[in-house]
């Protein structure tokens, strides 16, 4: 009996896909119930899947055999990020100096601070490039990490920590640093903590939300260029 189940699992493409979609929906449901940023559906789904795989001693490859078809959509979806950016083009034309100036400063700060701290911790090149794309959206960050020879899964974890923390601290950080302008708030949140922070920016106001979502893609593209330079330093 168990042999039949094991064999069916190993050959099944649908097991990984079904498990991913079901746990993600469960994650969405839990998020709705508890209303906490830490209850992120992506994180909850990953925890549930890992627990299930470990509990039933199912190999990651068995899961990945089907789940890879979900990852397959990542490239076309990243291409589609051009659509929301295109819709915000008017905003970009209205405040070009503030947007490009601030995001350039943010991306440069990201590179320098990650470089210095990696140096302080004595990280290897592989670990360093794993962390370099930590502040940008997962879609672009994963691609950078892979291209540079980083550990992609750890990059995703780092991006998640960044996003969840950004979402939690955004409001108080703006207050402490006396960032009062709604445009400046949005740029800070989107550049510092990508899509997860942006959900908080959207709650703070319309301008904050729009600026934050614009920053995700602009900061992402700038980071692609910046990482290709900074990756050579360690």
């Amino acid at each position: 009996m168990t042999e039949i189940v094991t064999e069916a699992l190993t050959e099944s493409v649908y097991f990984g896909i079904a498990l991913t979609l079901l746990t993600y929906q469960a994650g969405l449901w839990i998020k709705k119930k508890v209303k906490l940023t830490v209850a992120n559906p992506l994180l909850l789904s990953v925890i549930m899947i890992i627990s299930i795989l470990l509990a039933f001693e199912i190999d990651y490859d068995v899961y990945h055999n089907g789940a890879k078809y979900i990852s397959f959509f990542l490239t076309p979806t990243t291409v589609c990020l051009a659509v929301p950016l295109y819709r915000q083009l008017d905003l970009l034309k209205k405040y070009p100096k503030a947007i490009f100036g601030a995001i350039t400063a943010g991306v440069f700060t990201a590179m320098v601070s990650i470089y210095l701290m990696s140096l302080a911790f004595g990280l290897t090149h592989e670990q360093y490039v794993t962390l370099l794309p930590k502040s940008i959206t997962t879609a672009i960050g994963m691609g950078i990490s892979e291209k540079m020879g980083g550990i992609v899964t750890i990059t995703v974890v780092s991006i998640s920590i960044t996003g969840i923390l950004g979402n939690i601290v955004a409001e108080s950080l703006c207050k402490i640093c006396k960032i009062q302008d709604p445009i400046a708030k949005g740029l800070a949140i989107g550049t510092g903590s990508h899509a997860l922070g942006t959900t908080k920016a959207m709650e703070m106001g319309e301008i904050e939300g729009a600026m934050s979502s614009l920053s995700i893609v602009v900061a992402g593209i700038m980071t692609v260029v910046a990482v290709s330079i900074f990756a050579n330093f360690i």
Partner: peptide, 23 residues
């Protein structure tokens, strides 16, 4: 440890610098 420390600290620094520069 470096993962958690770097991910957290840099997020705060980046937000502060970006926001102050924009303002």
């Amino acid at each position: 440890i470096p993962l958690v420390v770097i991910s957290s600290l840099t997020t705060l620094i980046i937000m502060a610098v970006t926001g102050r520069t924009a303002q």
